[in-house]
Amino acid sequence: MKVILDQDKCVASGQCVVAAADVFDQRDEDGIAVLLTSDPTPDQADDTRHAAAVCPALAIQIQE
């Protein structure tokens, strides 16, 4: 699985961090999401898919 994050679309909602804290974080200054890894482990995969699903800006793409 590969994760692609579009920071231009991100609205800093933090939903991805709530869903998958091992894969996503937010910048301290403006809350824009950052990837901790673009290559989640198999046991992070479900949470990562959930993060992409609940992102209100559709800023997260997943390539299986």
Binding site: A12, G14, G31
Partner: peptide
């Protein structure tokens, strides 16, 4: 949060 997205979350 007012201009503090991460800290609010």
């Amino acid at each position: 949060g007012w201009n503090m997205p991460k800290q609010a979350r």
